[in-house]
């Protein structure tokens, strides 16, 4: 499956099960360490991994193995997502949809502008005193 030639690892992968998405996840993992080139022929992908710095055959084989592990992991994860219980995903969707609502402004500061001014003055004095403690 993995061929090493001229410091480049070439991998042939059948489709299915491999998908472009899974190859993209594998390539992302090698970001900064290798360039990934993708070719597509009838029923198969061909991936070439060119390391950023020269590698021994053993290192290159390990890199290609890491790439393949990530591809498989991505494929399996996609399968799981399809069959996983729906409730946790629905809850996450709801949390993200709602966003993280921040605390509303202090009503006391809004009703009594002087409260806000007093607090700002107090904070300014604290900052002034703290500046004296810094080198």
């Amino acid at each position: 499956m993995i061929e090493i030639e001229d410091g480049v690892a070439s991998i042939s992968l059948p489709k299915p099960p491999y998908t472009v998405e899974s190859l993209r996840m594998g390539a992302l993992l090698l970001s900064g360490r290798a360039e990934a080139f993708l070719d597509e022929k009838r029923g198969a992908f061909r991936v070439e991994l060119k390391p950023a710095v020269p590698m021994t055959e053993l290192e290159l084989r390990a890199l290609a193995g890491e790439f393949l592990n990530e591809c498989l992991s991505c494929l399996y994860r996609q399968e799981l997502i399809k069959s996983a219980p729906e409730v946790p995903q629905a809850l996450l969707a709801q949390v993200l949809e709602k966003g993280f609502p921040a605390l509303p402004p202090d009503p006391l500061e809004q009703l009594e502008p002087q409260v806000r001014v007093d607090r700002e003055t107090e904070t300014e004095e604290l900052l002034k005193a703290a500046r004296k403690l810094l080198p």
Binding site: E122, T123, L126, A130, K132, L134
Partner: peptide, 15 residues
């Protein structure tokens, strides 16, 4: 050297 920061944050956070 960062004591001034601690001093401020502690009191400001308490307030």
């Amino acid at each position: 050297s960062e004591w001034g920061l601690v001093w401020f944050i502690v009191q400001y956070a308490r307030r």
